[in-house]
Structure formats: C-alpha cells, structure tokens
C-alpha cells in the first residue's frame, strides 16, 4: 500500500477528517487532504488540526470546495485517486436551520460533485462517505439499537434531510454507474480536536469559565456517544474492505450504548473536577430525542468493537482541552 495511489480525504481540517488522516498517515498511506477552510466552526481550530498533518511527507493539502465539481474531478483524475473518504459537510443541525442553502450546497451539491468525480475516475475502488444518525429522525429509544434498514424517511432537520438525500444519491450512483460505496452513519462523535459547537465541547468551555449551561430537552435526551478513535478504526476498517462493484452499503458507527444527556454531563463534570449551574430548556428545533446504534453490521464486516467508553473518552477530551487551550487543572 505504501507509495500506492493516494487516499483523498475531504474535510481534512475537520474533526473526523483530521483524525482519519492522522491514522492513515501513521500506517504509511499517501493522503491528499481537501478542505475549503470556511469560517463555519472554528477557523483557528481547523488551522491547528492541519498543522499537525503538515509535517508528513505523505500528506498533501489542497484548499478546495467539494461543491465545485470541476475541481473535484480534476483532483481525482490528476492524482489517480482510487479511494475517497468524503467527510466534508456543513455539520450539525443548528447551521442547517440558520443557513439552509449553505447546508444544501455543501451536503447535497458537494456530495454530488464527489460522486461525479469518482464516477469519472479511470480506476476507482471505493467511496466512503459520512452520513449521520440524524437520518433516523425523531424516534423513541426503544429496546434495541437503530438498524441500518430501519426506516429513515422522516428527517426532522434539514441537516438530516441532506444526509439522507446524499445516501439516496449514492444509491443511484451505485445502481447507475456501479460505484462501490460505503455510507457511515456517525453517532455523536466526540473527543480531542472535536467540534466546538457540540454540546460536550460547549459545556466544557462554559463550565471552566464558571458560566451556566443550557440543557435542552430538559435533559431528557439520549445519545450514543462515540469516541473519535473508535470511529477512525471503523472508518479505516470499512475503507479497507471495498464493496463489490455496484454495491452501496450503509453502516452505523456508534458505541452501541445510549447514555442520557444528564449522565454525559455528570461524567464530564467528573472529568473536569468541577460542576456548574444548569438551566433547563425545552428541546431545540430539529433535535431528536434519542439515538442508539446497532453496530452488528459494521462488526461483521470489520470486527469493529468500540474500545473507549464515555468516562475514559471525556477524560481524554478534557486532558486535550486543558492542554490545547492552556487551562490548568
């Protein structure tokens, strides 16, 4: 594999893209990182993530927007890219409500541009792309995890709708062009270098600043929190097992264990060694009540088994946070 055709990662300055690039580089892959470095999220954090990759001789960064079809096609063509990990997106429900067209452009238009670029490649092996647990819509927790063939036709946010739309577009590209693909439905990925707009990150900042936190849904929400390292293991495992031509598989990637929001907060407070005032708030528009991944399919394919539980994962996150932002314990 060393010295072979490069793996292209879109959204390489993002949370999961950065971690995936690190893992692939560590094992000797050539990586081309693509990111438009837009100012959604935290530009300084994106730059800091990229800075950790820049030293690798096998890493090549290209500032580009996935929603530019010609640029994407040229990248894939010029570098003889055969495997793409497409993680670029306008992530999160909140942005999709406030900037719907930007969300659509990135998540739908961008996905199509990547599909087209891959379809046009001379030799193409595998497109692995990010979907979301949001596609399951607002459903009760129930007694078992959400399975990939459960209905996913009732999105309650535009973000979920764009992610589901991307899955359906991928299905059509597999049927039409035989493009081998894997869609990974991520379940609340967290950890070092994470997204500042995510609840655990936001709560950490506020707690350390001695400010109150707003707890939406009155705390009656449940999430399948998935540690970043486990997610990357799942991504790489799935990437290395390319589907057959014409195959499009969708896989959950979670910890397989739902935790209540209040448990997450208590665990985070324990990791921080301090508590803060909490204000109960109603549900935010677009949020779902619960997520819970059935991870049997990914396990069967790759042997995936999450290693890092919530307490350990949040401990590692807090350690990184204190170090990165210079907040002494």
């Amino acid at each position: 594999m060393i010295g072979g055709p490069p793996i292209l990662i879109t959204g390489a300055a993002g949370f999961i893209g950065h971690a995936t690039a690190q893992r692939l580089l560590a094992r000797g892959d050539q990586v081309i990182g693509v990111d438009n470095l837009d100012d959604h999220g935290d530009p300084a954090l994106k730059a800091a993530r990229l800075a950790t990759l820049d030293g690798h001789a096998a890493f090549h960064f290209v500032k580009a927007d996935v929603a530019e079809p010609e640029g994407m096609a040229r990248l894939v063509h010029d570098h003889d890219v055969r495997r793409v990990v497409h993680l670029a997106a306008q992530a999160g429900v909140r942005h999709s409500i406030t900037t719907p067209f930007a969300c659509e452009r990135s998540n739908v238009g961008g996905h199509l541009a990547v599909l087209e670029a891959c379809r046009q490649a001379q030799t193409f092996e595998h497109l692995l792309y990010a979907s979301s647990s949001a596609v399951y819509g607002d459903r009760p927790l129930g007694s078992a995890g959400f399975r990939e063939d459960d209905p996913a036709d009732t999105p309650v946010s535009l973000y979920a709708a764009t992610k589901r739309a991307a899955e359906l577009m991928s299905h059509s590209y597999a049927a039409l062009h035989g493009l081998p693909q894997t869609g990974l439905r991520f379940f609340t990925v967290y950890g070092p270098w994470g997204r500042p707009d995510m609840a655990y990150f936001h709560f950490t900042r506020l707690t350390l600043a001695g400010e109150a936190i707003d707890i939406y849904g009155n705390g009656a929400m449940t999430r399948d929190f998935t540690y970043i390292d486990d997610v990357v293991t799942g991504i790489v495992g799935a990437l290395d097992r390319a589907p057959a031509r014409g195959e499009h598989r969708i896989l959950n990637i979670g910890e397989g264990r739902p935790e209540s929001l209040m448990t997450m907060i208590a665990t985070l407070e324990a990791a921080l060694g301090q508590t803060t005032r909490k204000r109960m708030q109603p549900m935010q528009p677009g949020d779902v009540t619960a997520t819970w991944a059935d991870i049997a399919r990914l396990h069967r394919l790759t042997g995936y088994r999450p290693r890092v539980g919530l307490a350990e994962g949040l401990q590692r996150f807090v350690g990184w946070y204190r170090d990165f932002y210079g907040v002494a314990a």
Binding site: R94, F187, D197, H202, Y216, Q284
Partner: peptide, 8 residues
C-alpha cells in the same frame, strides 16, 4: 444570542 449547541 442564545448559544445553541449541536446534539449529534
């Protein structure tokens, strides 16, 4: 600006 967060 009510600081809203992403839950997933």
């Amino acid at each position: 600006a009510t600081e809203r967060v992403n839950m997933l």
